[in-house]
Amino acid sequence: MDILITGLLLGGTYALIAMGLNLQYGMARIMNLANGEMLVAGGFVAFWFWTGSQISPLLTVFVVAPVAFLLNWLIYLIFLRPLVKRAKSRGQLEVDSILTTFGLSFVAVGLMLAFFGGDYFSYSYLSEPVHILGDTYGANRVAAFLAAVVICGLLWLWLNRSRAGMTIRAISVAPESARLVGIDVRRTAALAFALGGAVTATGGALISTFLTLDASTGVIFTLKALVIVIMGGVGDVRGTIVAALLLGLLETFVARLVDPGLTLAAAYLLFVVILLFRPQGLFGRPTT
């Protein structure tokens, strides 16, 4: 029972991170391998504000999100739009964007190492226990989970109800037809990319309340987010949430019952199984 709840709490936060990547890959069509670094950067900022001036990470989010939005928007304009323009085929864009975002990811790690050093950073915020169904959990995990649920919910509402959200979904489903009905695909893709970055950075600020991060852990979160996005189905919000909860459960399960050093291996194994049996994602229809 206690594994189940811890797993779900972790999965909720994962859902937020993966949602960010899904916006970028599913909607803006850029496989952003620097996604994890955005998360770590979000975590850094939260750490800074807390240790520096005791500002709650739950409030820091309101600073992190707009800054990350702006930063990702600039990254898209400066680095990625030229690639989209010059790409002759989807395959070429894929290779170019993989290399570029890897490059950006290394640059980000390098810069963070230079400014903050290679130390692990963690802080204790809301570390008092909370009782749920007779077991105790860290209040920070519960708070992060609740915040993630609220943000995911708002995002889902926005994507399904608002005009801008519908536009983003339209370009993910059919970029060509979207252009025909008067959607500015390039601007919308930039918007989706920036929003994805903001969501991931927010996830980073939340996750830093209960996990220890360092400048080079970003890639691990990128991997996890990728596994979730692929498992849930690219561009599928509902699938992402279910997949994230599943991964949270699996990791907690493996960490408790087998060995905490095997969590990534477990995630990877899950990824392999998905690739072999349901490459189109949990809820995806087979495509040709």
Partner: peptide, 17 residues
């Protein structure tokens, strides 16, 4: 010694662009 990652990143970007 701390800037090898940065170098790697810059090289990736140089190659692409």
């Amino acid at each position: 010694p701390n800037q090898t990652t940065l170098l790697l990143g810059v090289c990736f970007l140089v190659i692409v662009y």
